[in-house]
Amino acid sequence: MKQEINEKPLLKGLAINDKKAVETIYRENYNMVQSLIINNNGSADDAKDIFQEAMIVLYEKVRSGTFELNCQIKTYLYSVSKRLWLKRLQQLNRYAPPIEDPESTVSVDEEIEDHEKRDAEFEMMNKAISSLGEPCKSLLEAYYLQKQNMQVIAANFGYTNADNAKNQKYKCLMRLKKIFFAHYKNENGDG
């Protein structure tokens, strides 16, 4: 119980992408996950991939809820990492050894399913934005992701005034939305 109370501020920090909180969680759990992966047919690079993905699952979990896990952060990250790694081994058709758990685990199948769906959506968005090419990519990123205002963008991108930049941004946006909604309807139409 005491542990969980101590971990709440950390989870709150994580939810707002506070670097200190992320660093603490990272530092306290990375080695555990790395030994799990390396002892089970993986490399250090695999360990980094899997651990970071598990961190994203945790991040999404605390953002959607009340910053409360029904277990310790450590248990959660271990469970997610293990599940992700077994899945990865299966996909690669590599031998998936039976893993003996030094840590206790919790069921995280549902969360991983949600995560995979979201991950696919983000990857799609990532590809869609990249496929637009320049200047569209940087222009849309500056406005929608970095939330810069149009005057600043116009200046940084060398447009003579904000209206020209707006025009260009509008054209780019239309292209992106077209790709986005084509995927979106496909996904949700086929179930």
């Binding site: 670097k19 992320v22 660093e23 990272y26 530092r27 970071q52 983000f122």
Partner: peptide, 28 residues
């Protein structure tokens, strides 16, 4: 928005990993 935050978070993870590995705080 969610995509932007996801991207930012991934950036943070990457940064943190590099920092911690360099400081020898994780044995990456």
């Amino acid at each position: 928005n969610r995509f932007g935050e996801w991207q930012k978070f991934r950036g943070t993870l990457h940064e943190v990993h590099t920092d911690l590995a360099e400081q020898g705080k994780i044995n990456s």
